[in-house]
Every structure is written in C-alpha cells, then in structure tokens.
Design a protein around this nucleic acid. Structure first.
Length: 418
RNA sequence: GGAGGGAUGGCCGAGUGGAAGAAGGCGCACGACUCGAAAUCGUGUUUCCGAUAAAAGUCGGAACGGGGGUUCGAAUCCCUCUCCCUCCGCCA
C-alpha cells in the first residue's frame, strides 16, 4: 500500500504506473474522496472538542450538586452530530481504502517501462551433447525417480511425487541450499504452511490473487503460495529496533498454487505444478540501504547456482512484467540444455515499504520511526532446478552424476542409476 | 468440543463511570555529581489522524487486544470476535 499523502500528491504518476503494470483500476475519484474525508474529519473533531468540554463541565457541576440538564441536552445533540459525521466518514474511508489497497507499488527509477529483454548478467555455458540426450521426463522415468501418475492418483494432476533417489535428491537440494544460506548470514525459520487472510493481504497476494490460492474455507486459511507470506508476516504489526536490522531469514516451505487460467501451458512434468518445494530468502532492512541489500540477495541466489554448476542469466524485469507489490525485480533463469529453454527459478524483489505498510512492520530507534523495507527471493525453487540439474548431469549411459556439492547430502552417493 | 480466568505504554504492573495518555517500578535518553564509572538526584521518554508552518514546532482529535453498544462522559458497564492461560473431553 502507498501512503495516502503520497497518492494525493502523485496522482498522475500513479495513473501511469497502473497502466504500465497492466492493472485495472480507476482512481479518478480519489482526489474528491480525499478532500471530503479531510473536510469531515475537521468538522467532526470540532464537534468532539466541544462535547469533551461540556462533559468535563458536567462532571464538575455534578460534584457540586448543581443542575446539568441543559448542558446534557446540548451534549446529546453534539453526540448525535458526531455520530452522523462518523457514518459518512467511514463510508468514504472504505471507498478510499478499496482504492488504496488496489494501487500497485511504484517502480524504482532504474526499472525500464517497456518489455525489451534486459539481461544484466550471465554465468556458465550452455551444455552441448556428444550423444543423443534424453528429456528429463524420459530419464526420470527410466530411473524411476519421479512417479507423476501416482501423484495424480493420490491427489490430482500437477501434484508431483518423487521416489527413491529422486526424493533424496530433492531433500538434498533443500538441505544444501539452506545450509549455504545459513553460512552466508541467514537465520533459518520453519513456518506454518497455512496462513490467515490478514497475512495474505500483508504481502499483497490479496485482494488481487484470491482465485489463484488454495483456501481452507472452514477456517478461512490459505495454503501459502510461497514462503514469502509466512516469513514476511512473522513481524506483522511489530516495531523492530533499528539495531536489529537487517533481519535475514531463510526458510523452506512447500508452496501451493492453483495456477488458475494457465491450463494448456506447461501442463506436463515439473515445469508448472500445484505443489512445489522452495527455499525462500526474506530480508527486513532500513530503507536507506534496501537496494544494496537487493544486490547482495541476488548474489546469494547466484552462489547456489554457481556451486551446483548450473548455467544462468539474470534479467531486470520491466514494469509490465513486475508483480503488484514490487518496486524492482530481477528474475534468475537457469538453462535446461535438453529442453533448450530458460527456466525461471527465482524472482529477487525489493518491495520497499509497500508490504511493510500493509502489514504494519516498522522500525524505531535513534529518535526515528518508519516502515522497514522488505525484500525476498527464492533461493531457489526446486522443480525447475531439478529439471535443469538432471539435464546438465545426465550421462551417455542414461545415469545422472551427482554434483560435487551434493554428494555429502546424498549419503556419499555419486551417481543415480537404475 | 465443554467450564472458568485473562489481554493496559519498550517491559512489569495499578486503576470498576468524570479533573487519567493513563499511578508506581524497571528500562532507555539527557543533565548534575565524579578523574571516569557505579550509586544517587533531576528532567524527559507512545503512536496515529487532521489543521497550520519552509522547518523545528504549534493547535485539535483519537487510541488501554479488534469491532459494536449504553452514557453528557467508558481502560472501567453490556454484546461480539480474536488470542493467551487453567481444568475436563477428544486426538496425534
């Protein structure tokens, strides 16, 4: 959410951002609503001031045993007036809030508007094969490390089931990534997977994306679409002491997405699934250095891929590709040499104070208070990493070599074979 | 699921209809004392909204878990929701 005063002073800029981010929102009535709101507050507060004065007097007179009837009558009238102002006011404030919570975040000035491909960095080489490689799905089938059919049987389509060395590889990757991030200064957290409505609102998934989430209707809880939600909301409605910043968390969570409306695209295999594992990084920072923290967070993600020897590139997303709450986002994409595709495994974003204002996450200290900046990144999402890893490490005899860094996590196993 | 108790400032904790943004303590900040520190003494120490101002600030309003009600007036009375604690039940 943006500050109401900022919206008041930057209405044209905001209209432009709404258009560039492709949101469907009309804010033309905001200025008038805001004017009315402030006018009403002024009037109401004046009535309240008068009533307060009279009430105080009544108290004094009563103690002296004097008659207060005429004053009580006056105060009754004022109370009625205050009430009627309050009613109009809360109506207007509801309207204003409906608008405010649907206004997307303002992009950072370094973010380009139009969709040219802006690759800011590449690492590694695209693997070339001197044999006919198998697709990751064929290879996983022949090695019996994925059992997607049985995943469908126990749940439904696009709920993957890993088996044997596949399950262990998944678990090894999670542990490897968490350990690596811990060694780089992150504190591990393991959060609930189900989150409440307020949390979903706090990080900005609601109200826009309600239909994309799994929801437990009976308890009005949502299955987290990303660990960003539970981790960022850990500090919901808190004031964090300045000297504790930055706070850096790493956490694993299974993530759930209905992917409504994306049927027909990547429906096969692991590229787009309803449940997937993800290791998430979240930072709470002092506003002045959040962009430095964004860069270092990007490096934290890169280190994972470098250690696994996975070729990647980094794109700076233009405004029209950015999410609702983000001010600046890098996408990290890894190369899948058999699919011959770049696969997104992480979005590294600075939300500035947009989420913090929604969730009430403040800092205080040194005589100052304000909203913290929140950042997050996947470090990284598992299914696509799994794909790329299988394809990058498959051998001509139909086995998969385990990357050096993972061997200790695989019980010293160096190869996956039949 | 049933019965009872509770939620007050950074923390502890008083306060059951009027002069209370809230006693007292702790903590913290500044000052005095000191060579310096501790101890002691003094002063200060919440946030939000609106108006005004270039700004510091000044003025007004609001806030005692959330929402609603009673009343001229609510931390205090009533209703409701959430959360925490104790006991019983159920279950891993």
């Amino acid at each position: 959410m943006l500050d109401i005063g900022f919206v008041r002073d930057n209405i044209e800029l905001i209209k432009k951002v709404i258009k560039n981010k492709g949101e469907d929102l009309d804010i033309s009535c905001f200025i008038e609503l805001d004017k009315q709101r402030r006018k009403l507050i002024l009037k109401r507060d004046e009535k309240r001031r008068k009533r307060k004065e009279i009430s105080k007097k009544i108290g004094e007179l009563k103690r002296e045993g004097k008659d207060t009837e005429s004053r009580e009558k006056e105060a009754r009238r004022l109370t009625k007036e205050v009430k009627s102002y309050d009613e109009s006011l809360s109506k207007i404030e509801d309207d204003i809030n409906e608008i405010l919570k649907r206004i997307p975040n303002i992009p950072h000035q370094s973010v380009p508007v139009e969709g040219d491909e802006i690759v800011i960095r590449k690492w590694g080489n695209k693997r070339e094969f001197d044999f006919e490689p198998l697709s990751y799905l064929d290879l996983c089938n022949s090695l019996s490390i994925l059992d997607l059919k049985r995943g469908v049987k126990v749940s439904s389509t696009s709920f993957p089931l890993y088996k044997g060395d596949g399950a262990m590889l998944e678990r090894s990757l999670i542990n490897f990534m968490i350990d690596t991030h811990i060694s780089r200064g992150y504190t591990e957290v393991f959060t609930p997977f189900l989150v409440n409505r307020e949390s979903m609102y706090g990080t900005g998934q609601l109200p826009k994306l309600e239909y994309d989430m799994y929801r437990i209707e009976k308890d009005d809880l949502f299955l987290n679409p990303t660990a960003e939600v539970p981790i960022t909301n850990m500090h919901k409605n808190e004031s964090i002491l300045l000297e504790k910043l930055p706070i850096k968390y790493v956490g694993y969570a299974a993530s759930f997405r209905r992917e409504a409306g994306s049927y027909g695209k990547d429906t096969k295999g692991l590229i787009r699934v309803h449940q997937f594992n993800k290791v998430e990084l979240v930072k709470f920072t002092y506003p002045d250095n959040s962009y430095d923290e964004l860069e270092s967070m990007l490096e934290d993600v890169e280190v994972i891929l470098q250690q696994l020897g996975i070729t990647y590139r980094i794109r700076l997303l233009p405004v029209n590709d950015m999410s609702f709450a983000s001010a600046k986002t890098y996408d990290v994409e890894i190369w899948a040499p058999v699919l011959k595709r770049w696969l997104e495994v992480s979005s590294v974003s600075n939300f500035e104070d947009f989420q913090a204002r929604r969730a009430g996450i403040k800092f205080k200290g040194g005589g100052k208070t304000g909203y913290v900046h929140t950042l997050n990144a996947s470090g990284v999402a598992l299914p696509r990493l799994f794909i790329s890893l299988i394809e990058n490490y498959e051998t001509s005899d139909g086995t998969v070599k385990i990357p050096d860094k993972l061997i200790k996590y695989m019980g010293k196993q160096e190869i996956i074979n039949r």
